[in-house]
Simulated assay, not measured.
Amino acid sequence: MLPASASAPRIDLNSDLGEGFGRWELGDDDRMLDVVSSANVACGFHAGDPATMRRTVRGAARRGVAIGAHVSYRDLAGFGRRAMDVPSDDLRADVVYQLGALQAFATAEGARVRYVKPHGALYHAAATDERVARDVAVAVAGVDPTLVLLGLPGSVALSAAAEAGLATATEAFADRAYTPAGTLVPRGEPGSVLDDADAVAARVLRLVTTGTVTAVDGTEVRVPADSVCVHGDTPGAVAMAQRVREVLAAQGVELRPFVETA
């Protein structure tokens, strides 16, 4: 346990949820919602359909889990993970459309969307491309300037969000490998996704208590994080998230959303 005199650290656990489509199911949203404190809800462009979106929002609201819009490129076939060159007018409209849809479901369930996290290829593009980052930030701020943008520490996405007047929060990934530069190892490379629940849990505990992770080359990388993502579509995702939560709780780490939910 942490020393009694030390102030107990706290962290948010988030997961990408609502990623089924029609008869196709991905992950176990109900069980994951019992573990995480924030839900990044797919908004229909990379995954999710209206019924799935509403069901996920309802489940999050009932549990007091913070609701975030997981906006994406329009890419159902590629699950939003294919790089795209979308003109600014179209990209801004796409973000507004997705955010508006999720807000409507949240309102219908007596809840609110509290933050935005881009998905997949859009997340990575916004992290480094100033034009894409600005488009996302301006679109979000135009819908609701009280929303928080969740992204990689030090990314262009967070800088653009701040310039647009949005609050920002930093994110780390429990089950993804890091490069020495503090970026994520691309999914196509060996070892990019981690699947040992005990190792992942120990890694997250170290991240929360020291602010560092070990990169693929063995160097230590500083990764300040307000929230830690455990992906909902990886094999054994729920068991991994449960193990992360158990280890953190056992060490006195408080688990709570990084945004207000009341």
Rank of each mutant, 00 (worst) to 15 (best):
G20I: 04
D75N: 10
E260W: 10
A121K: 00
P180V: 11
V36N: 00
A167N: 13
R82F: 11
D233E: 14
V228H: 03
A42M: 09
G188A: 15
A225K: 00
G22H: 08
D29T: 06
A104Y: 09
V138I: 14
W24N: 13
A106V: 01
R55S: 12
A39W: 03
F79H: 08
D12Q: 04
E130S: 15
A121F: 05
A51E: 15
Y73R: 02
E109N: 09
L158D: 01
P224T: 06
V116Y: 03
A250Q: 14
R176G: 06
V71R: 01
R187M: 13
F79T: 03
S72A: 15
F173M: 11
R81D: 07
R92W: 10
F21Q: 05
M53C: 10
A106E: 01
A47N: 05
V221I: 12
A47F: 09
A127T: 02
A93Y: 10
V259K: 02
P257D: 04
D90F: 11
G211M: 10
W24C: 13
D29W: 04
L26Y: 08
V208P: 00
S155K: 02
V138L: 15
G27I: 05
Y115M: 05
S155W: 06
G182K: 06
S227C: 13
Q251W: 14
G165M: 13
L150G: 02
P50F: 12
T179S: 08
L158A: 02
Q251R: 15
A83F: 14
L255D: 03
G218T: 13
D196W: 12
S37L: 07
A177T: 11
T52L: 13
L26S: 13
A47Q: 04
P50E: 09
A162I: 09
V247A: 01
V259R: 03
G44R: 00
S192D: 13
D16Q: 12
D30E: 15
A250E: 15
D129H: 11
A181N: 11
A61H: 03
G191V: 05
A225D: 02
G68V: 04
L205M: 06
L152G: 00
T170L: 09
I11W: 02
S37W: 07
A111N: 01
